[in-house]
Simulated scan of single mutants.
Amino acid sequence: MISKTILYGLTLASSISTTLGHWTYSRLIVNDEVVGEPWQYIRRHNNSNAPLTNVNSTDFRCNVDAQAAETYTVRVGDEVGFGIDEHFGHPGIQQVYLSRAPEGVAAADYDGSGGWARVYSLTSSPTNSTNSSSTNDEEEEVLTWATHNMETFRFALPTSTPPGEYLLRAEGLALHAAHKWAQAQFYVSCAQIKVVAGEEDVTNNLGADVREEEEDLGPLVTIPGVYRGDEPGVLIPVFWSFLTNYTAPGPALWPEGTQEQHVVEQL
């Protein structure tokens, strides 16, 4: 018979092991620095560092019971990103979605029910590692991940982003159990930003502003609705350490021509 002490120890060890590798996003990065305090510009949620697995819940937008934060002003072309507590702890990818609040609605009052554009995707590293555990006669090259142990990431806010107030949504997708239905783990937080014209704007001789033409965001998706749960990239065909190719889920990246990234830019 197992003693109560041993049983308690096994239960505690199991509980601890389920949280290892989990993370959340609590800090906004603009250009070369973390701005403000943790959660000052990120909507604080009540989900600690636990993952989301239900892609059909409204919690999938900004996480569980996310509360409005302050809004930080950025310029088009600025580098924006997130700080991660503690670090990206599972194999997988990092993506970012952007949603503009309706005209006359502040980001703090926006519930994220409008359209979202995918503006950033960080996936596999540019070089693969060798899967030494392969049972095949010939070793297979498998994917490694650019997100491995990253603590921050950032990317350039498109210069064609229309001015306005936005939710900027970080979405980390952990794949270590994603070969099973509804076991892909999503880690989500939303920052609130106000986008204004860039410092590089100049005035021509006629007094008109000269700037890169603004583009409507798109293709747009709704959240929930962006994923079904069975598409490539969310439900993977084999255990992650045997993956030799990967297709990131989501709509086409915006603006048109934006490329998937394979090297992370950290602070």
Score class of each variant (00 low, 15 high):
L7E: 12
L10T: 09
L12Q: 12
I16F: 12
T18R: 14
T19W: 12
G21P: 02
G21W: 04
G21R: 03
H22F: 09
Y25S: 01
Y25M: 04
Y25E: 01
Y25G: 00
S26N: 13
V30D: 07
N31Y: 07
D32M: 00
D32R: 11
D32Y: 07
V35K: 07
G36P: 04
E37A: 12
P38R: 15
W39T: 06
Q40V: 06
Q40C: 04
Y41P: 08
I42R: 10
I42L: 14
R43E: 12
R44N: 15
N47A: 13
N49V: 15
N49W: 11
A50L: 15
P51A: 11
P51L: 07
P51R: 06
P51V: 07
T53Y: 10
N54E: 12
N54C: 09
V55R: 09
N56L: 14
T58G: 02
T58L: 07
D59F: 10
V64M: 10
A66I: 04
A68Q: 07
A69M: 04
A69L: 06
E70K: 11
E70R: 07
T71F: 01
Y72A: 06
Y72S: 01
Y72P: 03
T73M: 08
V74D: 01
G77Q: 09
D78F: 05
E79A: 10
V80K: 01
V80T: 05
G81W: 00
G83Q: 06
I84V: 04
D85F: 12
H87I: 03
F88D: 02
F88N: 05
F88K: 03
G89W: 03
G89Q: 02
G89M: 04
H90N: 04
G92H: 03
I93W: 04
Q94V: 13
Q94L: 14
Q94G: 07
Q95A: 12
Q95W: 01
Q95V: 12
L98E: 03
L98R: 03
L98H: 05
S99Y: 00
A101D: 01
G104R: 04
G104V: 02
V105G: 00
A106V: 02
A107G: 08
A108H: 09
D109G: 05
Y110M: 10
G112L: 09
S113L: 08
S113G: 14
G114R: 06
A117F: 02
A117T: 02
Y120I: 05
Y120P: 02
S124H: 15
S125E: 14
T127K: 09
T127L: 06
